[in-house]
């Protein structure tokens, strides 16, 4: 049983720890502690990427794993997951996140897992963040990014798909990062420091704004234009 729930392997930039996505969480973390302790100080100083698959990990749960690793001289550096809950927890803890990325381990990924709701519409998966992104935070996704909150100046969003900000957009935003020129950026109050879509860059006009209103940025005739959102 022990080997099935926790896998630790060395990757070029540190350790990749893969936790079983379905086994009871308390059991998995206990198993993890045992695994590390068996090796004594072997992992001391290691930077850890945690791979939890589809498991939704709450912030307090992630905090306790982070502490568990830190007590053993290791640093939790990044979290890789398919679950928005997990990614949101990781961002709340100021950790790097890897969403929907092809895992460095080669573990079998099921990219359609999120779409298996028998949906009539197809679409790209995305990350949903329900908090304000303050300066220094960043989100990256190979799908879309939705922020329910503000994006403050100094924060950064990068998405291969679209970016939707249900709040004030003041930071840097990059939609269509893989070259998709049909990508859009929407915000309730559009005042990004810098806005990029595919290969285009725009900055906000310097003049003071009037009443904020929802707007959409998109590429039209080879330039980024910002239009009122009329529904």
């Amino acid at each position: 049983m022990p080997d099935s729930t926790v896998a630790i392997k060395g990757v070029n930039d540190g350790l990749l720890i893969t936790l079983d996505p379905v086994e009871e969480w308390g059991l998995v973390t206990a198993e993890l502690a045992t695994h590390i302790d068996e090796k004594g100080a072997f992992f001391n100083g290691a930077e850890v990427t945690l791979e939890v698959g589809t498991r939704p990990v709450r912030k307090d749960e992630l905090t306790s794993v982070k502490a568990l690793l830190e007590r053993r001289g290791m640093t939790l550096f990044a979290v890789s997951s398919d679950s928005d809950t997990t990614l949101e927890s990781a961002i709340a803890l100021d950790l790097r996140v890897r969403a929907n990325s092809s895992p460095p381990s080669g573990a079998a990924y099921e990219p359609d897992a999120l779409l298996s709701f028998n949906s009539e519409e197809d679409g790209l998966a995305g990350v949903m963040i329900r908090r304000t992104m303050r300066s220094g935070r960043s989100v990256r996704s190979q799908g879309h990014v939705v922020i329910y909150g503000d994006v403050n100046a100094g924060a950064e969003i990068l998405a291969a798909g679209d970016v939707i900000v249900w709040g004030k957009l003041r930071g840097n935003v990059y939609a269509g990062a893989d070259g998709d020129e049909t990508a859009v950026v929407c915000a309730l109050d559009m005042q990004p420091t810098q806005l990029r879509i595919a290969g285009y860059i725009a900055i906000s006009p310097p003049e003071k704004r009037r009443k904020p209103k929802p707007e959409v940025a998109l590429i039209r005739n080879d330039r980024i234009v910002v239009e009122d959102w009329d529904g």
Partner: peptide, 12 residues
């Protein structure tokens, strides 16, 4: 701006 960063770190 720096205060904003600090608040984010404290939240974390």
């Amino acid at each position: 701006r720096d205060a904003d960063r600090i608040i984010g770190l404290l939240e974390a």
